[in-house]
């Protein structure tokens, strides 16, 4: 690096720049850096939540955490949930975007309807789904029996693996509109002439999807997958409201475990340790995401 001698004006300009970004930096520190550091700090204590009294225990929270089966089970659940719901979101989201991209007369209406699950509050959505899933009077069991798929009502939320499958499906239903909107926006920018050229070159509908649509969607899909992976990984309210992590800890993911440690077991220090581990895991996704967006910009 070479240092270019700065003129007086340039120095004043730089000072002005610093002054202008200072408020942002300050807010960033207060709302992000401080909680982050304090979480790491708390994780080094054993703290009783109601009184917030605690004593220094060093890394023993982490030692305990890594040696408990519950952590590994929750991490496993977390991965199953994230991968399962993400795959469904992508598959249905892309498929729906392709359908909506066609020139349908009800396209405008369908596009607004499709956003409904994304906008409806999680609490309301979960209440509706709980009613659908109910093993006594739920419509899902009724329909499945009528269709001859099952003989007796199923317990969709109270037994495994049904509970995990249900959670994954509701998650996919709630968040696939995000994929639809992002993919649809990209689809509309693919030049029609590429498809026409491919038709002349002898590509059928499947080949056109594979050779033109998918490569064009690649970049946006990478971003969607990374963003949704981060968001799904830390999803709390949907799972908590639907199953509460049950049956037993069958659908308990790390965010639910953090909540349980902090407010049910009153072990704030331990909860902080779980949260820090989760953060470290998500940092990996973050780094990939940042690298990806950097590459796109260059």
């Amino acid at each position: 690096m070479t240092t270019v001698p700065q003129t007086h004006l340039e120095r004043r300009y730089a000072a002005l720049g610093l002054l202008l970004i200072a408020p942002t930096v300050l807010v960033f520190c207060v709302v992000i850096v401080y909680p982050l550091i304090s979480a790491v700090y708390l994780s080094l204590f054993s703290i009783f939540t109601p009184t917030l009294q605690g004593e220094w225990v060093g890394l023993s929270n982490y030692q305990a955490l890594l040696s408990t089966g519950e952590f590994w089970t929750s991490l496993g659940n977390n991965v199953i949930w994230t991968v399962g719901t993400l795959v469904l979101q992508i598959v249905f989201g892309v498929a729906m975007a392709l359908v909506l991209h066609e020139n349908l007369w009800f396209r405008a209406l369908a596009r607004s309807l499709i956003l409904f699950p994304y906008f409806v509050s999680t609490v309301v959505a979960v209440l509706v789904w709980k009613w659908l899933f109910n093993d006594l009077y739920g419509i899902l069991n009724h329909l499945m029996i009528v269709a001859g798929l099952i003989e007796f009502p199923l317990d969709h939320l109270g037994s495994m693996p049904n509970a995990m499958i249900s959670v994954i499906i509701v998650g996919a239903w709630k968040y696939f509109p995000f994929v639809v909107i992002a993919v649809l926006a990209r689809l509309q920018t693919i030049p029609e002439q590429l498809y026409e050229a491919a038709r002349i070159d002898g590509a059928g509908p499947f080949a056109r999807f594979w050779d033109i649509t998918l490569p064009q969607l690649r970049e946006v899909l990478v971003v969607i997958v990374l963003l949704r992976a981060i968001w799904d990984f830390k999803e709390f309210d949907l799972i908590f409201l639907l199953t509460g992590g049950g049956p037993i800890i069958g659908t308990q993911t790390l965010p639910l475990l953090v909540y349980k440690e902090a407010f049910a077991l009153n072990r704030m220090g331990m909860a902080a340790a779980y949260a820090v581990v989760m953060m470290a895991l998500m940092l990996a996704f973050m780094l990939i995401y940042i690298r990806q967006t950097r590459r796109r910009e260059s």
Partner: peptide
């Protein structure tokens, strides 16, 4: 007859090259 079966080739104004 669909385009692929006409034994024609077309050059588009925008070229329409496959970008990837």
């Amino acid at each position: 007859v669909p385009p692929a079966k006409r034994d024609i080739a077309m050059v588009f104004q925008s070229y329409a090259l496959y970008p990837h």
